[in-house]
Design a protein around this nucleic acid. Structure first.
Lengths: 168, 168
DNA sequence: CTGAATTTTCAATAATTACTGAAAGTTTAA
DNA sequence: TTAAACTTTCAGTAATTATTGAAAATTCAG
């Protein structure tokens, strides 16, 4: 397979995976493109490579920067901005986990905590079912939260080392 | 807070979380409704509770059954079908992990394996960047895959027990 | 300053995804 | 059988989400 074709396949696959996990397809594709690019790219180059508009490229890049996955670079004597993606997959995974936890898990945990404290008639099976489900999900969500916390603080080798011990 | 209001909040929160993670909002809401219902519900009841159409309810329920999260029940002497959700959060988590792995992670792993084997000019930094990124992501994805595998086989207590050892 | 290069914004539009509702299909009690 | 009860399907439509492109804003070399 030729490098150009391979890159395209990678960009396509990454875009698809992203869209299945609630990440805008274009954003995932721009990220993928930068991941496999040795040099930082200009907006112009990204637009051309992925056939997207200037506006789209600009907003997508801003989002990627907001997610901590991409950074701007400036080259001496040039007006144009260049964009470069962190290539360390462990950093990428942590960054994504961190952002999604903040944006999505935290708000849900807050609501679950509230709902865990709803009082009601312990003789009412409807109340008991509600109460138990909410408390169980809350517990699970908190476990996930703690695990993410460990992951965010961990060195890659230490984290996966710990995971692997589970297999023995 | 009243039980009815609390249920609504729960359904809303679960629906939002689902939609942020690539699961159709209605599907997540129907699941949430069944999770907090003591008794199995009919299509009619679900339609009314969530203000959705018969067609939508029917397709959503079929999907939930396909995900292994809901099952049909029949009551003696009744024509209607009743729907009941497994309330065990560990089962739910495993079921979701299992399905998403099969539907999304596996296909990507297949592509990454292919792309990991792309040959090229080791003097070309573009090729090297591509190759390294793909291989690194492949490695990460495989780690995730193995972890999911363990999780799928695990008893809840054993799994979280192992996770918690990471903290000490 | 000036104005060309570049980036940003956002209303309009396109593309995608989800939902409805009525018709067709199926099941079962009598 | 028959027909009422119930379920399924899917073309049409609605709602949501993503993208464009051109105008406005910004930047900076001269």
């Amino acid at each position: 397979m030729e490098l150009t074709v391979a890159k395209q396949k990678f960009i396509e696959a990454w875009g698809k995976l992203g869209s299945e996990w609630g990440i805008n397809r274009t954003m995932a594709q721009v990220h993928a493109l930068l991941l496999v690019s040795y040099e930082a790219l200009t907006t112009e180059e990204i637009m051309k490579e992925l056939s997207i508009s200037r506006g789209n490229a600009n907003m997508t890049l801003r989002d990627l920067i907001g997610w901590g996955l991409v950074e701007k670079q400036h080259k001496a004597g040039e007006r144009k901005e260049y964009f470069y993606a962190d290539k360390d997959t462990w950093n990428i995974a942590r960054q994504v986990a961190k952002e999604r936890r903040k944006r999505e898990l935290d708000p849900v945990l807050k609501i679950l905590d509230e709902l865990s404290n709803v009082q009601g008639d312990v003789k009412d099976p409807e109340f008991n079912t509600f109460s138990k489900s909410v408390k169980d999900i809350n517990k699970l969500a908190k476990n996930v939260d703690k695990t993410l916390d460990t992951m965010l603080k961990a060195e890659e080798s230490w984290f996966w080392g710990s995971i692997f011990k589970m297999f023995k």
